[in-house]
Amino acid sequence: MSAVEVAPVPRPASRPLWLRLVRNPGGAIGLAIFAVLIVAAVFAPWIAPYSPIKLATGRPLTPPGAAHLLGTDELGRDVFSRLLFGARLTLQIGAIAVGISLVAGLALGLAAAHFRGWTERILMRSTDVLFSFTETLIALAFVAVLGPSLTNAMLAVGVAAIPFYARTAYASALSETAKPYYEGAEAAGAGPLRLIFRHLLPNVMPTMIVVATLGLSNAILAAAALGFLGLGAQPPQPEWGYMLSAGRDFMNRAPWLMLYPGLAIAATVFAFNILGDALREALDPRSGGR
């Protein structure tokens, strides 16, 4: 009988993650937009017909046309070039802000889930307090203290989202600590650091990758909002949110000044959202992707 039981189970062929992603329509579209964004950001100096900050590349407020694909703004700068360079800032903002909230959130959440007791109470109650303010308000307060600049905006957006990441990491880690393998590792002699980094972190990561992807779009929106309010990127930086805000004054005369940055933000946010959903499916072992 044991001979039957010990017979090797055929190793299920596991498809690589990116293949599973591409096969999902949402994943494919999300990845495609993301790729366009990367290309735009990396090759902006070569693709862009004009400098993003050079004034009077054409007549101010030229409508979209042959010379200026997406028109020019009130100072005669080329909107298309500014959007391309803006992609750099946008990706940078997303990566740094999400990086801050992800690392800090994981540290808080995993520590609370592992140590429980007073550590858990203090950490989680403090995140609860932060939770009761909207993220934008926290970011605003942060920038108000540090002064308006793109760097501070990134920091502010990242810090404001920490409670959310901490809560998610905590919930996910807590369900892992309740599984017997965690106690099994503890019985096998694993100390706190090993338990947290070797057992908790890898098992919490799939959830957090999805959260971070969805969080990217939030971070970009929040940074754009700060830019719109004049608290983020400062002129003449071609940040999308700031472009949107500057274009507001000419909404009737030159609608393209708001239309294209708005579309760029919307497309990026949309891409990260569906990419996040696709990732969630691809990383879920029950989805049959194994």
Binding site: P180, Y181, E183, G184, A185, A188, G189, A190, H199
Partner: peptide
């Protein structure tokens, strides 16, 4: 004093191979 749990699906770390699972007590103890 070691312990063996009921649920064979949850009592091993899903991201650890058999040798990694065994390496933990072998290295630590």
């Amino acid at each position: 004093v070691q312990i063996v749990f009921q649920d064979p699906f949850a009592s091993l770390d899903p991201r650890f191979t058999a040798v990694q699972t065994l390496a933990e007590p072998l290295a630590l103890h």
